[in-house]
Design a protein around this nucleic acid. Structure first.
Lengths: 208, 208
DNA sequence: GCCCGGTACGAACGATCGTGCTGTAATGGA
DNA sequence: TCCATTACAGCACGATCGTTCGTACCGGGC
């Protein structure tokens, strides 16, 4: 539905709570009551927008990633698609702002938000798990810990990119991602013995 | 002003945009016009709330941290105080939700938000810099990169703690923090030579 | 004494909020 | 061709939004 696309765009910009029926009706060239007839209430509208954004996110981030080869390549694909979606200010910002908005007001919207997010975190952890099974990640690593850290990096990215408009946000994000990945990867390039003052070139390159 | 404390609490819960003058007047047992007289407009109210929250944050997080010894101890103190404030749902959530809310709507509130946040990031970077000067952190490290990564971790913490109510959020956050710190610390405990299959115990301990 | 700036009030404003009810033009299967 | 369904518009409702106005009370300086 084209209405939901418009609604999602507005909600991503102003927040789910600031999404107003009258404003949305004007944007879609519909009457307020005509638009309202499609949803029984504003809450249903918010839930529909959330579902729409989730479908978009699955289509543009998760599914493309699962088409990449299992293991680190898949995790990298997830990262890349995720960053692209966030950069364009699409669905992702909706989830970030909605999460901050509804983190303290109970109700169906919050519940759905929690479910969606838990599912996504589980997807990340699962992709990481296949990386362990493929022998690319350390077998003693905690997949949910990796999901937590990756998610934090992306939150920082959206923050720096959208609010601060830091032109180096992308570069910083990628560097943090590579560092985390390097920490979890199996068989890191062995450092030269006792090179505390002059760190291993591979590590230094990953950090500069 | 007690009114601002109430306003900050509401804004932290519902967001700065959902902070309404009538609602705030009822909470403070004032008439709407009587309360409105103190601020010339809602925008000024939002800015005042922001300034109030910033002062609280400086008092409860930044200043206590600067009283800790220079170097890693100070960075750790910052982390601890930051986590405590975020856990109690005080000022920090206001900044997180406000950032997500105003990241796409220009105006004085957004500008102030950006200034405050840049200042805070700079504070983190500066604390890290003293750690370099003290010889505790790698001299080739990028302080702003560290600030970015720490900030991302905390964003992930607030998200997991407040929205998902993950009981393991604190533990995950601390682990991520220790990992990042270990990456930036100088003179990591030297790994046994050629221990690719069995990683160094110190690293494994930091991750489990 | 008087005046004055601050602080608070009640009432009201136009606008917009979410939400109903009613009417109607279009549509598609029987 | 008829009829049920759908998709919309029009209008109106009570509530609440931010804001303004006029008006008190109350303190201290002239």
């Amino acid at each position: 539905m084209a209405v939901l696309a418009q609604a999602a765009e507005v909600a991503a910009r102003q927040g789910l709570g600031a999404l107003t029926i009258g404003d949305l009706a004007a944007r879609t060239h519909l009457s307020k009551s005509g638009l309202f007839a499609h949803f029984q209430s504003k809450e249903v509208l918010q839930l529909d927008v959330l579902a729409y954004a989730r479908d978009r996110f699955v289509d543009e981030v998760i599914r493309p990633a699962t088409r990449a080869p299992r293991g680190e390549a898949r995790v990298r694909a997830l990262f890349e698609h995720w960053a692209v979606v966030g950069r364009q200010g699409h669905a992702e910002c909706l989830f970030v702002s909605a999460a901050a908005e509804f983190d303290d007001q109970p109700g169906p919207v919050r519940d759905q938000l929690v479910r969606d997010h838990r599912d996504f975190i589980d997807s990340i952890a699962q992709m990481f798990r296949t990386g362990i099974a493929e022998g690319e990640f350390r077998p003693d690593a905690d997949p949910e810990q990796f999901a937590f850290e990756l998610h934090g990096i992306m939150l920082g990215y959206f923050h720096a990119h959208r609010l601060l408009q830091d032109p180096r946000a992308g570069e910083r994000t990628r560097r943090a991602f590579e560092t985390v990945l390097a920490d979890y990867r199996i068989a890191p390039p062995p450092a030269e013995p006792d090179s505390a003052e002059s760190p291993a070139p591979a590590v230094a390159a990953a950090r500069s």
